[in-house]
Amino acid sequence: MKGEQIPHKMLSEDPFSTWMGIEILECEIGRCKVGMKVRGDMLNSMGKAHGGISYTLADTAFGFIANTHGKYAVSIETSINHIEALNEGDYLVAESVIEKVNNKLGFNIIEVKRGDELIALFKGVVYRTQKDWEE
């Protein structure tokens, strides 16, 4: 299976990301841009988007990017810095700005933006298995 096809397969088999409304905007090997709109049922008790919303979007982008190299890759460590609060109706985009891959590990930094405004920074490390993605 070609690397840029893998995220589409992953999304089609991911009910949680589908429920979130995540869509693939662009995808190629080592790069994937995803987006979603914040809905009312994603807000916390303060009327702002729950922190898990931007985290989930970034984590989904991270998983897609890591797997575009054709091998199953699984997350082993992640973290996020929340920079700005999010509101209902905000459209968010997550994209990797740094990727470093070696035989067993992959490292990514993902920016989450609302328009041109940086709202979160996500860092992730994946373990790259030797299992190939198949059609």
Rank of each mutant, 00 (worst) to 15 (best):
Ala49Met: 02
Met46Asn: 12
Thr56Asn: 08
Lys71Arg: 13
Val97Tyr: 13
Val101Gln: 07
Ile53Pro: 00
Ala58Ser: 09
Ile98Ser: 09
Asn87Glu: 11
Gly52Ser: 08
Asn103Met: 11
Ile83Ser: 09
Ile65Tyr: 03
Ile80Thr: 11
Thr60Ser: 15
His50Phe: 13
His69Asp: 04
Ala73Arg: 02
Ile53Arg: 00
Ile83Cys: 10
Asp59Leu: 01
Ile53Gln: 00
Ile65Gln: 05
His69Glu: 08
Gly106Arg: 06
Gly63Leu: 01
Gly47Asn: 01
Asn87Arg: 04
Val97Leu: 08
Glu88Asn: 09
Glu95Gly: 07
Phe62Cys: 11
Ile80Cys: 08
Gly70Ile: 02
Glu88Lys: 07
His69Ser: 10
His82Phe: 15
Ala66Phe: 02
Gly51Lys: 05
Ile80Leu: 10
Ile76Phe: 07
Glu99Cys: 11
Thr56Ala: 15
Ala73Cys: 10
Asn102Pro: 05
Thr78Lys: 04
Asp59Gly: 01
Ala85Gln: 04
Lys48Trp: 04
Asn67Met: 04
Ser96Cys: 14
Tyr55Ala: 06
Asn108Arg: 11
Asn81Lys: 15
Val97Cys: 10
Ala66Met: 11
Leu92Arg: 00
Val97Ala: 08
Ala58Ile: 07
Val74Tyr: 13
Ala85Glu: 03
His69Leu: 08
Asp90Leu: 00
Gly106Met: 11
Val93Gln: 13
Ile98Pro: 01
Leu57Asn: 04
Val101Leu: 09
Gly70Thr: 03
Phe64Met: 12
Gly70Tyr: 04
Ile83Arg: 12
Asn103Pro: 05
Thr78Ala: 15
Ile76Asp: 06
Asn87Thr: 01
Ser54Cys: 05
Tyr72Asn: 08
His69Val: 05
Tyr91Gln: 09
Met46Gly: 11
Tyr55Glu: 02
Gly63Cys: 05
Lys100Met: 09
Thr78Trp: 04
Tyr55Phe: 15
Phe62Pro: 03
Ala94Val: 10
Ile76Ser: 10
Ala58Gly: 07
Gly63Pro: 00
Glu88Ala: 09
Glu95Ile: 11
Val93Trp: 06
Asn81Asp: 15
Tyr72His: 15
Thr60His: 03
Gly106Phe: 06
His82Asn: 12
Ile109Asp: 08
Ile83Glu: 09
Lys71Asn: 11
Met46Leu: 14
Asp90His: 00
Thr78Leu: 03
Ala58Asn: 06
Val101Ser: 08
Gly63Val: 01
Val97Phe: 10
Asn108Val: 14
Ser54Asn: 05
Ser54Phe: 00
Gly89Trp: 03
Ile98Leu: 13
Ser75Thr: 14
Val97Gly: 06
Lys71Gly: 00
His82Val: 08
Asn44Tyr: 09
Leu57Gln: 04
Asn87Pro: 01
Asp59Trp: 02
Asn87Asp: 13
Ile76Tyr: 10
Lys48Ile: 08
Gly70Asn: 04
Ile109Cys: 05
Glu99Val: 13
Ser75Gln: 09
Ile109Gln: 12
Asn102Asp: 14
Ile76Pro: 03
Asn103Val: 08
Leu92Gly: 01
Leu57Glu: 05
Gly89Phe: 04
Lys48Phe: 12
Tyr72Ile: 15
Leu105Met: 15
Tyr72Gly: 02
Glu99Thr: 14
Ala66Cys: 13
Asn103Gln: 14
Asn44Val: 07
Tyr72Lys: 15
Tyr91Glu: 14
Phe64Asn: 01
Leu92Trp: 00
Gly52Gln: 07
Ala49Ile: 02
